[in-house]
Design a protein around this nucleic acid. Structure first.
Length: 293
DNA sequence: GTCCAGGGAATCA
DNA sequence: TGATTCCATGGA
């Protein structure tokens, strides 16, 4: 019999660089949903947390093994990182970036589980965000753990072991489309330790980690960079290039007549020249600004 | 009916 | 290496 989870709360005061919509709508995560009161509720690992911002930021929820909620959210929201310093540094680059930073000033890069990030971004390929969220939610409901809180049932993201016996056809039936085989193959590559996720955390060379990720089925350059940036690997020196980022980089800097013809290597080189080892964070401000504004 | 979505893999030059 | 094409699905 599993012990009941204790409802916990943590109140954070005086936190600049923390806006709910900026954090949850900038495309880095798929499991946070807006409530009627403007707060957001999400599941990560086996935690269910609601975040509400008025003057202070209030975290309420239940945590895996009743671990202290302050420690849990400090890790997940990367609360000890100085975003004011990062924004100051990036604002010096040019007015374009400065404007986008003002627009998305409350963005933070979440510290998401590596396995979940890999699978989520394989699903994201040639897909739109509402549909990605729907597919992931069905995966969780079918194969994740149930977590009860506030008289509602939530579902954790299934582990690789929980997906071990899921077939390609099962995935197809859940609406994954052509991504079904990729999800199946990658799950088993990780279960077989062809790719060892622990080793990825221990490798310091970003390029080597990227090479390993690219071996996974369904992981190409863009998905690999998203995994590097948005997961617990936390590599801020990568610059994921999707259609939106290509668009914004062409509009601001390259100014090619046909933005679909812009070379990705050119964008990548330009990003690193301009933004250096903070390119990934710069990418998030630009992405959010282009998509929302 | 057509186009598009946080692309990747296979194919061909 | 670099460019093209196909891949399911659902919403606009």
């Amino acid at each position: 019999m599993k012990e009941d989870l204790i409802k916990q709360q943590y109140i954070l005061k005086n936190q600049d660089s923390f806006e709910l919509s900026h954090i949850f709508e900038c495309g880095q995560c798929f499991r946070w949903n807006k409530e009627q009161d403007g707060s957001y509720t999400g599941v990560f690992k086996n935690n269910v947390v609601n975040v509400k911002k008025s003057q202070d930021i209030v975290f309420t929820g239940v945590c895996e093994n009743n671990k202290n909620i302050q420690e849990v959210v400090e890790d997940y929201f990367d609360l000890n990182r100085d975003y004011e310093k990062i924004k100051l540094e990036l604002s010096k680059v040019d007015d374009n970036l400065k404007n986008s930073i003002q627009y998305g000033n409350g963005i933070r890069i979440l510290n998401q589980d590596l396995w979940e990030t890999i699978i989520s971004f394989i699903i994201s390929a040639n897909n739109n965000i509402p549909r990605i969220k729907g597919i992931i939610e069905r995966l969780c409901q079918n194969y994740g753990n149930t977590i009860c809180w506030n008289e509602k049932t939530y579902y954790s993201f299934p582990t690789a072991q929980q997906l071990e016996n899921v077939s390609v056809q099962d995935y197809r039936n859940m609406g994954l489309g052509f991504r079904d085989v990729r999800l199946y193959e990658t799950t088993h590559m990780i279960l077989n330790k062809e790719i060892d996720l622990q080793n990825l955390h221990e490798e310091s060379d970003t390029f080597k980690v990227r090479e390993e990720l690219l071996k996974l089925s369904g992981v190409g350059p863009k998905v690999a960079d998203c995994i590097l940036l948005f997961s617990s690997l936390k590599r801020f020196d990568v610059f994921p290039i999707d259609v939106w980022v290509r668009r914004v980089m062409n509009d601001l800097y390259i100014k090619n007549e046909d933005e679909t013809k812009v070379n990705k290597n050119l964008i990548e080189k330009m990003a690193y020249d301009k933004f250096g080892d903070l390119a990934g964070i710069a990418q998030q401000y630009l992405f959010y600004w282009k998509r929302e504004a």
